[in-house]
Design a protein around this nucleic acid. Sequence first.
DNA 1: ATGCGTGCAAACGATTTGCAACTTG
DNA 2: CAAGTTGCAAATCGTTTGCACGCAT
Lengths: 128, 128
Amino acid sequence: MERETKQQKQIYEVLEECKSHPTLLELTHLVKEKYPNIGQATVYRFVRRYMKRGIVMKLSSFDEDRYDINFNHQHFQCVCCGKIEDVFLKNDVVSLVEDSLKDKKILNTQILVQGICDDCKEKYEEEM
Amino acid sequence: MERETKQQKQIYEVLEECKSHPTLLELTHLVKEKYPNIGQATVYRFVRRYMKRGIVMKLSSFDEDRYDINFNHQHFQCVCCGKIEDVFLKNDVVSLVEDSLKDKKILNTQILVQGICDDCKEKYEEEM
DNA sequence: ATGCGTGCAAACGATTTGCAACTTG
DNA sequence: CAAGTTGCAAATCGTTTGCACGCAT
C-alpha cells in the first residue's frame, strides 16, 4: 500500500506555490531551497508517481518538459522562444471534451496550443 | 537558410505512414528498416526541427514521449497501461479553442485526455 | 513490527555534439 | 562554390536504481 510522507507533502506544496511551469531540474532546485534535505531522486519519484495518478501533468512542449499541477487553465507555447503562457478559455471547452468521452474514467484534460508569440513574430519570419 | 534534404522527406514519410505514436527510438528503428543508411542523429535532428516548426508534435504522456504528425484527432492516454488511443471529438473543439485565441499566430492545438481505460479499471482500483 | 519511502552516489541510457565528407541551392 | 546537412562515434547529462536507514501504518 502506498504511503503519504512528509517529503511528498512538501514537494506538492512547492509545486503548488510555484506559479511558473518548472522543469524537473528547476523543481528540484525550488524544493531544495525550501527543504534542503530532500534528495533529488525523491523529487523525481514524486513527479512520476503523481503523474501516474493524474495529479501532476507534464506539458508537451517542443523543447524541455515542464510540469504543472493546476488544471483550471490551458497553455499556449511559443515555438520560437519556448515561453509558455497560461490561457483561460471563455467557453468551457474541457467539459465539452470530457462529455464526448463520458464512457471513460477521466483524470484530467490538457489543451496545448502552439504558435508564435507577439515578441517573436519578426524573428520567426526571418528564421524560416 | 534551411535546406530540404532527401533524408528529411524520407523520415517524414515514415512518420506519416506510421499509424501508431512512436517514441524516438521506435521511430529510429522504423526509419532504419526502410532506409538503413539514415543515421540516428538525423532522426533526432529531424524531430526537433519539425517540432519547432509546429509540424511534428510531442505527446506528453506520463511515461515515454511519443510523436505524431497528424492533427485531425485528439488523444486519450491510460495512466495505468500507458496506451494512447486516437479520439475523434464530435464537436469541433479545436476551432473553439483557436477562436478564443485569434490574436495569436497558431500552428497547432493538441488535446490530451488522461484517464483509465476499460482494460485497466480493475487493476487500477487495486493499486491505489 | 513490517515494509514502503528516502537519500546518496553510482550506473544507465537517451540525446546531443564535433567533425570530415557530402549535398543542396 | 559556399553553406547547411549527414553519419558516425564519443561525450554529455538528465533520469533511474541499489542499498542501508528511517519512518508511516
